[in-house]
Computed example of a mutant assay.
Amino acid sequence: MPDVSIFHRPKLAGQLADQILHTSPTSASPSGVFLAAPRRTGKSTFVREDLRPALEAKKAIVIYVDLWADRNVDPSELLAAAVRAEMGEHANAVAKIAKGFGISGGKVGGIDFSLDRIGIGKDVTLAQALGALSDEIKQPIVIVIDEAQHALTTQAGMDSLFAMKAARDELNSSAHFGLRLVCTGSNRDKLAMLRNSRDQAFYGAPLVPFPHLGEDYIDWFCKHVGLPAALDPAAVFELFKKAGWRPELLGAAADALRFDFGIAAGDVPSRFAEAVDEQIEGATSETLRVVRALTPLQTAVLLVLAQSGDNYRPFEAATVEKYRESLTAAGEPAESAAKVDVPSVQAALQALQEKSLIWRASRGVYALEDASLREVLLDTGSGADPAAPAQM
């Protein structure tokens, strides 16, 4: 029986699975499919609980890896570990590799071969390992990489993406049984870096906005919420939109009411609406608390980055002048603004990374860590154009 503690989306999962596995000479899907959705809107849960089972129901082997599972581990190693784990389930594929390369090591399934020799810069490439796996299972393989943009943060991570491209090209030939890549990410701009440029591994792959949860989810939520009185789905749906389509905010609001043992049934709808507003305000306040603890220059750099988006060039003269204008607009002394230079900007960017406010690709491209931060900054007036009259 399905788990009633999780809202399932079988129709969407089936549609996506069909498209992912679809083979057509006019389709770019074999290049990989990219699904973008804001963080905490249910994307990862859907991938694990719905999409993976739907792909497996269509006789595909699914290898899932979350590149945010351990941010202290290089993304390339997380990806290689996921491939090794699947290989460990197929002794004949391991035997084929061991025989072909004459490698000995730890015992795996009675075979003299150590799986830790598979990976970037190892004895056995990811393409070779996946090729052997494809020949053994005679089924399509789907590799799902959650938070795939994190691979761009290290050179080894970027190399692993090209290794996946090599494996994809090989396994989609007539000699094997197919490989599909599904990359998900919480920031559309960062995810697009994987497929917008000709020098990226998945140039031209489809980038699909992941559908947010809708009214059917709200109907399910209201049915299972378990409060002393029923909630009106139409009213809750409006609250859900206000909460940025984030189910965890509705859940947290419901929890607040569950532990209010003196609440009257007639007060439940209004108190639930208040609790959702409190959750939204709390999430925004925590973000702003971190922002307001920044140094003036760190704040200026963050605001200019938020305003510039894809056009952000951190060290150009024009950008440095924007930092100075932002400092002046915030009331900083003219001599402080005049001291802004490339080394001080580098230090500010490093500090913002350490505070998890910005993200840096290995090639020096910067973006906001969470795309919702820009909206928070602009909504509160903190992100006003530094060239405009001061609003502070």
Score class of each variant (00 low, 15 high):
residue 1 M to Y: 04
residue 3 D to W: 05
residue 4 V to I: 13
residue 6 I to A: 03
residue 7 F to S: 11
residue 18 D to L: 13
residue 27 S to Y: 05
residue 29 S to H: 06
residue 32 G to R: 00
residue 33 V to A: 10
residue 34 F to D: 02
residue 38 P to I: 06
residue 39 R to V: 07
residue 48 R to C: 10
residue 49 E to M: 14
residue 52 R to C: 09
residue 52 R to Y: 12
residue 61 I to L: 15
residue 65 V to R: 13
residue 68 W to M: 11
residue 72 N to I: 01
residue 72 N to Q: 14
residue 74 D to L: 11
residue 78 L to D: 02
residue 82 A to R: 04
residue 86 E to C: 07
residue 87 M to L: 14
residue 90 H to M: 02
residue 90 H to Q: 04
residue 92 N to R: 10
residue 93 A to T: 01
residue 93 A to L: 03
residue 93 A to E: 03
residue 98 A to Q: 10
residue 99 K to Q: 15
residue 99 K to R: 15
residue 106 G to L: 14
residue 108 V to I: 14
residue 110 G to P: 06
residue 119 G to I: 03
residue 123 D to Q: 15
residue 126 L to Q: 04
residue 126 L to R: 05
residue 127 A to G: 02
residue 128 Q to V: 03
residue 135 D to I: 00
residue 135 D to E: 12
residue 143 I to S: 05
residue 144 V to I: 15
residue 144 V to D: 06
residue 145 I to A: 07
residue 146 D to E: 07
residue 155 Q to E: 15
residue 155 Q to P: 00
residue 158 M to T: 12
residue 159 D to E: 15
residue 159 D to V: 07
residue 165 K to A: 01
residue 169 D to S: 04
residue 175 A to R: 13
residue 176 H to I: 01
residue 178 G to M: 12
residue 180 R to K: 12
residue 183 C to L: 11
residue 196 N to D: 15
residue 200 Q to V: 05
residue 211 P to A: 08
residue 212 H to S: 14
residue 212 H to W: 07
residue 218 I to K: 06
residue 218 I to Y: 09
residue 227 L to S: 09
residue 228 P to L: 11
residue 229 A to M: 12
residue 233 P to H: 11
residue 234 A to V: 15
residue 238 E to T: 07
residue 242 K to F: 09
residue 243 A to T: 01
residue 244 G to R: 03
residue 244 G to A: 04
residue 246 R to E: 08
residue 247 P to R: 02
residue 251 G to A: 10
residue 251 G to L: 13
residue 253 A to C: 08
residue 255 D to F: 15
residue 256 A to M: 13
residue 256 A to R: 15
residue 258 R to E: 06
residue 261 F to N: 05
residue 261 F to R: 10
residue 263 I to Q: 05
residue 264 A to M: 07
residue 265 A to I: 02
residue 266 G to C: 04
residue 269 P to R: 11
residue 269 P to S: 07
residue 271 R to L: 11
residue 273 A to Q: 07
residue 274 E to Q: 15
residue 274 E to S: 12
residue 274 E to H: 11
residue 279 Q to I: 09
residue 283 A to W: 04
residue 284 T to E: 08
residue 284 T to W: 00
residue 285 S to H: 00
residue 287 T to C: 03
residue 291 V to N: 09
residue 292 R to W: 10
residue 293 A to E: 14
residue 293 A to D: 14
residue 296 P to T: 01
residue 296 P to I: 02
residue 303 L to G: 06
residue 303 L to R: 13
residue 304 V to M: 05
residue 315 F to L: 11
residue 324 R to C: 08
residue 328 T to E: 13
residue 331 G to K: 06
residue 331 G to Y: 04
residue 334 A to Y: 05
residue 335 E to C: 04
residue 335 E to P: 02
residue 336 S to R: 12
residue 343 P to S: 09
residue 344 S to G: 03
residue 346 Q to D: 13
residue 349 L to K: 13
residue 352 L to I: 02
residue 355 K to P: 02
residue 363 R to T: 09
residue 370 D to P: 01
residue 372 S to M: 03
residue 381 G to P: 08
residue 385 D to N: 15
residue 392 M to Q: 07
